[in-house]
Design a protein around this nucleic acid. Sequence first.
DNA 1: GTAACCGGTAACCATTAGTTAACCGATAAC
DNA 2: GTTATCGGTTAACTAATGGTTACCGGTTAC
Lengths: 117, 117
Amino acid sequence: METPIKREATCEQELAAIRDSLEILGGKWKLRIMRYLNNHIDEKNTFKKIQREVEGISAKMLSKELRELEINLLVTRTVMETRPITVNYAMTEYGLSVFPVTETLVDWGLNHREKIK
Amino acid sequence: METPIKREATCEQELAAIRDSLEILGGKWKLRIMRYLNNHIDEKNTFKKIQREVEGISAKMLSKELRELEINLLVTRTVMETRPITVNYAMTEYGLSVFPVTETLVDWGLNHREKIK
DNA sequence: GTAACCGGTAACCATTAGTTAACCGATAAC
DNA sequence: GTTATCGGTTAACTAATGGTTACCGGTTAC
């Protein structure tokens, strides 16, 4: 993975950058899926397995979200010639760059739960 | 601001934490508003000023999003006795804890724009 | 033969998110 | 007296999100 370059930006550019990020990573499921894949990077992650572990997601949504992540080169989809056929989803090199985003959200969420308790 | 404690968590807990974070910070506008306020922390940030600078947001959405941020103790709302009356919005101490989240999204967005160019 | 697992898709529906435009009272500027 | 500013609210609407159920072909286990 290439080291991300630290960039300078005006407030306006920063807000546009957040908008761009959310266009690709926003919504209820994408960052959760990315985090799951990041936590299981050396395993085979089939459709059903992801659906079991990303709690609450329907087949329809999972299918749609994975397709969009694939289009944005964050995830790869590989049909495995097993019996029955399985499909393996994996993070790309580029997908790894999302890790800091999920990390800050995990930290914030854990901290928030403590705070409101 | 208290130093956030680093917490250990299972994958399941991490995904739940992301869900919690997104319940409060998710959607098209909240993180952009938070970033704007963070970048103008020592200024008076009136409703109209925020609306001008968070490009594209309507009065209705801004009003709704600020109300929700206020409910979650991330932002304060203060009516100023100026003529005409203005309303000042400011980040709370707790609101500052969102900074790392917006920071990673800014970085990712800037990097992504470079990448797809 | 029947049931179950895999990786989905299709149709339908309800809810939420977000946009647009008009409007409000109060005050100030011309 | 008219227009503009401030901080919104309201209504009407469309688009996007998401859930539910049923179903598909292919394969394996009983």
